[in-house]
């Protein structure tokens, strides 16, 4: 029996694999055409001048500045931390990012570099990005990251178990990782690109939220399809409906493929129009990105100076 969320109105749906399946398959089907056209329509909003300036600063403060490469070095992590703390060294009015996201063995390095800045360290864990490892390994990975000082843990779900219908196994894994996290916030990566259908994304979102996720995250950034406006919109609807049902608020983090300020602003419109402005806060909405920050900074420079900026005026990552 899972120990979390006994007070939730939906506690009874997680008592058995059959009950969980009945609940998840009882969620309304997703109108794919309607979802995509709604996401596309919201992407056509024009945001100008002061609203744009506000949105750019908000987007910067929502970034989980990420480096998840096999070639990551302590030096690269340190320079990323420095950039996250002062994204534009020539303009101290630029807000800091929300978190620095690294592999678990780099957490100590990042924690050290970020001391005193108030920026969180997020660590991917549970055999990221595939998630194909024994549960003991995943839990050990999580504990290591938290012990090293991670404030947030980004776990991947076991897509193999999810797609073969073993929902309770996925549920129990998330609750186990949540327990291993202790005080650290848990973000659950659904890896939408591997879930194949919108219905599956909706089910996975509810499954993760039922299991105690603090955030649901679209993707690892390591597969062909990452965050899209449509699948993020779907997840925003899920967190909105989940709060309406249970009273608990869950955050959303699109990750991968968001590279331009224009894209980021479209996502903020989705948040505002779907989940509402309660979610327009770094505590409840994040962008998992690396190159996005430079484009936001160039747009910000354009707004402050009136001149188009260029890649010569931001860091090389």
């Amino acid at each position: 029996m899972p120990s979390t969320a006994p007070a939730l109105p939906l506690a009874d749906v997680t008592v058995s694999d059959a009950a969980l399946r009945r609940f998840l398959h009882g969620l309304p089907g997703v109108d794919a055409v309607g979802l995509e056209s709604r996401a596309a329509a919201l992407g056509t909003r024009s945001i100008k001048t002061t609203a744009k300036s506000y949105a750019i600063d908000l987007a910067i403060s929502m970034i989980d500045l990420t480096t998840l490469e096999g070639s990551d070095t302590p030096g690269k992590v340190r320079s990323l931390c420095a950039k996250g703390a002062a994204p534009d060294p020539s303009d101290r009015s630029v807000p800091a990012v929300a978190a620095i996201c690294v592999y678990s063995d780099m957490v100590r390095e990042a924690k050290e570099a970020l001391r005193g800045t108030g920026i969180a360290v997020a660590s991917v864990a549970t055999a990221f990005p595939a998630g194909r490892a024994a549960r003991s390994v995943k839990l050990a990975d999580t504990r290591e990251a938290v012990a090293a000082g991670a404030d947030e843990v980004d776990m991947v779900i076991d897509r193999g178990a999810f797609l073969s219908g073993r929902y309770l196994q996925v549920f129990e894994e998330i609750t186990a990782v949540k327990a291993a996290c202790g005080e650290a916030h848990l973000k659950v990566i659904l890896e939408n690109g591997e879930l194949a259908t919108y219905d599956a994304i909706r089910r996975a979102s509810w499954l993760a939220m039922l299991a105690g996720a603090d955030f649901i995250k679209t993707s690892t950034g390591k597969v062909a399809v990452n965050a899209t406006p449509a699948n993020t919109l779907l997840m925003l609807e899920a967190v909105r409906d989940f709060r309406a049902t249970t009273g608990r608020q869950v955050g959303v983090k699109p990750a991968g493929g968001i590279r331009t300020a224009k894209d980021a602003l479209k996502y903020l419109v989705l948040v505002n129009e779907t989940a509402g402005d309660d979610w327009l806060d770094p505590a409840w909405f994040r962008f998992g990105a690396s190159s996005l920050l430079n484009d936001l900074l160039m747009q910000r420079q354009k707004l402050t100076t009136g001149r188009y900026s260029g890649p010569d005026y931001v860091t090389v990552d």
Binding site: Q301, G306, R307, Y308, S309, G310, P311, D312, Y313
Partner: peptide, 8 residues
């Protein structure tokens, strides 16, 4: 003017 002012 925008081309002359463009930093890139």
């Amino acid at each position: 003017p925008p081309l002359a002012a463009h930093q890139d």
